[in-house]
Design a binder for these strands. Structure first.
Lengths: 336, 336
DNA sequence: AACAATATTGCAAGCGCTTGCAAAATGGGA
DNA sequence: TCCCATTTTGCAAGCGCTTGCAATATTGTT
């Protein structure tokens, strides 16, 4: 491999005519160094092109500054938006993000976490999948913080950030009912994650309570293509629904496109549609999708805030936060 | 901070009744250890929950296994797709991605690279922005590989991966001409990056050569909103273009939506449109955008391939690769 | 059975850094 | 001017790992 030859603190010390400790202290916020020494050191460092070796520092301090982001489907609008917020906020508090892609086979979340341990990450944030309980314990035992976003695990220890999925499902039923819809459907993927199922359950429960007809259709992965297939299935039924709630915006886009372009169904005139996530495309004028906004910025804030809180305050802090998804009105549901 | 207490190789060694070196070698591929010792070690490691400390290993080996990805606008479809490919391919060769978000102020690319140096990254891949020449030299001097994607820098040393932007601009003119378009326009952002400008120049040059009318309009950042504004400007001209090439797909989507929904212009009947990137949305049936596909998978392959090649072969290898963007025909250009 | 060739092992040094401790320098009263 | 309280400084130990070297164990050959 490359012939790395980085300049070390020793070399800086020699050039500056001070001890290596002085160099170290100069680059340690809050350490005691006279202005004069500091100047000598920074000058020498500048001249030599010195950069603290965070590997060595992490080794000593037992704190690498690394936070692992465990994620699949990175290229998806919602995921990448969350990623943007997280990386940016992490950088603001002086941490750096290590991105682990779990698109591949099963058990990849566990592999990711073991990677996090090997790099002595200060924390891991899990956006996709669910780690095995044993590895969670291992992380926690090693003092590694864990946050689960929309994961809904029961294991105590990690910070769990969730949305009010069930309530969102309920709320949208009200909106559909107000628009005069009588026959509802929920278009879901087969992923079966708690957040998806929460939306479904809330939706179905509320519809039943109002005495509206309601059915559920599930297919594939949570993307545009699945939305097309689901539309295919739901819109060819003898009794076609007049309102469908799609588990995600991506699904909703596929659904809407198929309804309009393939079946010639007017949205929202003949069919009301709603989604979840509020991805950028939902606001594009081809869609104007009424949807629930995931508060990505707030999610990210909560996560990094928790990571940077001291161990002492840890017990006081609640380990579970529930945020509410705001309903964004656009034009895919008729006015009441 | 957390009371980390990871188990060390020493503890494993003691439990296994071998030397610490044996433990180290067990976890070093290709090292000499008998099957018997290896078993004792792995058992002990398993029982204790031992994980190699990559920080310490990186310190010794002078090779951290970290590759920095320097990127802005992570949440954009094209960028996140590239990210997906890169992270996944890096993991395949045993590297791990450190993601640095440069959305913020100026000079952030330089800050990112200095971060990369501090973590002794084996390499950095730059997807956005352009680093200062001095810091590039610093990276190279320290044996850190550098790859620039669509950056077009002149500095020797880094691997430069580029597309045939100019030729793409030319090719699309031919397509427009064949569709009977006579008055062309290029819708660009004000970013002015070489790849964007390449497309523009190729387009303008080819149009002139064919004696077609051609104009250029530039506005804002390379996103959906800019596309709307550009449409606003171009479509209210007294002599409205009948074909426009948008610098990116995101722009094109905004442009198309505005043309259709706000101006009631038929695409492709009254207006032919093309984009660049082939983001997922381009294939959605609301758009059916004819566009040039960035070979993201191939770009990622070339990048990580180069990173894992030996220093010796380095000189032989070319430091610049040019890939071609494939024209994907959909329905936003009339049939010839 | 004896020996050379090969494989495995442990020792110890060292990667670049931080930090407790004690010595040296500095400053402020009296 | 001298003494004590306060910074500032350097020393040296140690973080968890790898690896060259020499010693020991294993194997194959005749």
């Amino acid at each position: 491999m490359p012939p790395k030859d980085f300049v070390s603190a020793l070399e800086v010390a020699q050039r500056a005519g001070v001890s290596r400790s002085a160099v170290s202290r100069t680059f340690t916020p809050g350490a005691s160094v006279s202005a004069e020494t500091r100047k000598k050191v920074t000058d020498a460092a500048e001249a030599l092109g010195y950069h603290v070796n965070e590997l060595a520092r992490g080794l000593m301090r037992n704190e690498s500054g690394i936070v692992c982001l465990v994620v699949s489907d990175v290229a998806t609008p919602y995921r990448s938006a969350l990623l943007r917020e997280l990386t940016s906020k992490l950088q603001n508090v002086g941490k750096v993000a290590m991105l682990i892609n779990t698109d591949r086979s099963d058990g990849s979340v566990d592999r990711a976490l073991s990677q996090a341990i090997r790099y002595r990450a200060d924390a891991s944030i899990i956006l996709s999948g669910l780690p095995d309980a044993s590895i969670v314990r291992l992380c926690l035992k090693n003092g590694q913080r864990l946050v689960l976003i929309n994961r809904d695990d029961e294991e105590p220890g990690p910070l769990k950030i969730n949305l009010d999925d069930f309530e969102a499902g309920e709320r949208i039923v009200t909106a559909f009912a107000r628009a005069g819809c009588r026959s509802l459907a929920f278009a879901n993927s087969e992923a079966g994650t708690p957040s998806l199922m929460g939306r479904e359950h809330g939706f179905v429960a509320a519809a039943r309570k109002l005495g509206l007809e309601v059915s559920v259709e599930r297919y594939g992965w949570t993307g545009y293509e699945a939305g097309r297939v689901l539309a295919q299935r739901l819109l060819t039924r003898t009794q076609r629904p007049d309102a469908v709630f799609c588990a995600t915006d991506l699904l909703a886009c596929g659904f809407m496109d198929t309804a309009r372009h393939q079946f010639g169904i007017g949205v929202p005139q003949q069919l009301c549609l709603a989604g979840f996530d509020d991805i950028e495309q939902a606001s594009w004028s081809s869609y104007g999708l009424t949807t629930f906004a995931q508060p990505v910025a707030e999610i990210a804030s909560k996560a990094v805030e928790w990571l940077s809180t001291s161990e002492a305050a840890d017990n006081i802090l609640q380990h579970s936060v529930r945020l509410t998804a705001e309903l964004i009105w656009r034009t895919s549901i008729r006015a009441g």
